[in-house]
Amino acid sequence: MKLVVQIPCLNEEETLPLVLASIPREIPGVDEIVVLVIDDGCTDRTVEVARDHGVTEFVHHVRNQGLGRSFHDGVIRALELGADVVVNTDGDNQYPQERITDLVQPIVAGKADIVIADRQVHLVEHFSWAKKQLQKVGSAVVNRAAGTKLPDAASGFRAYSRESLILLNTITRFSYCMETIIQAGNKNLKIASIPVVTNAKTRESRLFKTTPEHIAKSAMAIIRSFIMYKPYVIFSWLTLFFGVVGMIPFLRYGVLWTQGEQGGHLQSLLLGVLLLTMAMLCVMLGVVADLIRTNRVLIEDNLEHTKRLRFGDSAEESLVRHGLSKVTYERVESSPS
């Protein structure tokens, strides 16, 4: 059993030594632990510091590509290294690396595909009241879209099984956290959560400059992921909304007509026609989006097979390795009569 701990870094020379020093050297059920540093366009001594602390595996970006891309490239390299479990943490020492042992145990035991650390947001001292509430709302929205019950969907401290990484395909470049949960939930992967206590704040977040920017980017990532898997839900609600609202002007016109006001009020009819037209457009967009969703499923099947060929995995071998095989096959040779 090989564990790869990947650390996306952007100018983390001051805090990276703390992260590397606190990563466990031995974990029950794990035979080998490899540390992988993703250099996301660092301009300081992050890479040199990592090498000085014994890190031998790196992914380098010439320019800053963002957290989502760093996660994606780190996962690809980890799979190339033969990782059975991949843990993602941060280079700013936000997370307690000593809890990596607890994070990977449900996967090692074959009880989960993904394990996410619950930062217990209400206990994080440097989070304002507004930010804590936004975190709760964000987690609730993601859980609704994914069909999960996770207390902290935005946490980046998490462990993935090899099989889950074969099945997941990240697209968002802002942050992979929300997208991977929505994908995993819709692919019926088992997601577990363990509570942790985060370390003291070392710097400001580099993912966003302001809270409204964070909300906007997170909302776009959630909506995009939701539409990919359940477009009929969104377009059905939009159709219902525009259809109901579009009938109101016609009802108003009918009431006025019965009251003898038979002249004018054409603006009501025009507004009603416009709203009902939008309802019909939503129906058509929903049909197209659902066809695209079906096509995406077929493409993801091909991507899964491509990954298995690239990384030398067969589906049955990977599932059996993690105790997650849901299908068994048997051939019985008929005896000659």
Rank of each mutant, 00 (worst) to 15 (best):
D152G: 09
K2D: 02
A83C: 07
G29Y: 06
V141F: 09
Q135T: 11
D39G: 09
D40H: 11
E333L: 03
I76E: 00
N186S: 10
L271H: 07
T328L: 00
G138E: 02
T328Q: 04
R51V: 07
N295W: 00
K217Q: 13
N93M: 09
I100W: 01
G110K: 08
H214A: 15
H265S: 13
E213I: 05
I23R: 05
V5E: 00
W257D: 03
Q183Y: 12
Q262A: 08
V197Q: 15
Q262G: 08
G312V: 01
K217P: 03
V196L: 11
C282R: 10
P195K: 13
Y160H: 11
V115P: 09
I166C: 10
S161C: 10
P106R: 01
R119D: 12
N295F: 03
R331H: 06
P17S: 05
V35C: 05
T89P: 09
E261C: 07
S337F: 10
R69T: 15
E98V: 11
A117F: 05
S70K: 07
R119F: 08
E13N: 13
H53W: 00
H60R: 15
V30C: 07
Q105L: 07
D290Q: 15
V108N: 09
D102N: 10
V47R: 15
I248N: 05
L10Y: 12
L271P: 00
S325P: 02
V288D: 05
H53K: 04
I223S: 10
R203D: 02
L298H: 15
Q259Y: 11
A219M: 05
E32G: 08
V104C: 09
T56Y: 08
W257Y: 15
N88H: 13
P96F: 03
N188S: 13
E57K: 14
Y329H: 12
E261A: 11
G110W: 06
P249D: 04
G74P: 04
A219R: 05
T15G: 07
A315V: 10
R25H: 10
V86E: 00
T46N: 04
L16K: 03
R69G: 06
I223A: 13
T239C: 11
V273Q: 02
L36W: 02
K131E: 15
V5M: 00
K187F: 02
V59T: 06
L165G: 07
P8T: 02
V49R: 11
N295K: 12
L103G: 03
T294K: 14
A184E: 00
Q120K: 13
T43H: 12
M284E: 12
E304P: 03
L270I: 11
N302K: 14
T101K: 02
I166L: 15
P28W: 01
H214E: 10
V86N: 04
R25Y: 05
V244F: 05
G54H: 07
I27V: 14
P96T: 12
L168H: 14
K326Q: 11
G110F: 12
A146P: 10
K326N: 04
R119E: 14
C9Y: 00
I27H: 03
Q6S: 12
A279W: 00
M278K: 04
K190N: 12
I38M: 06
I234R: 04
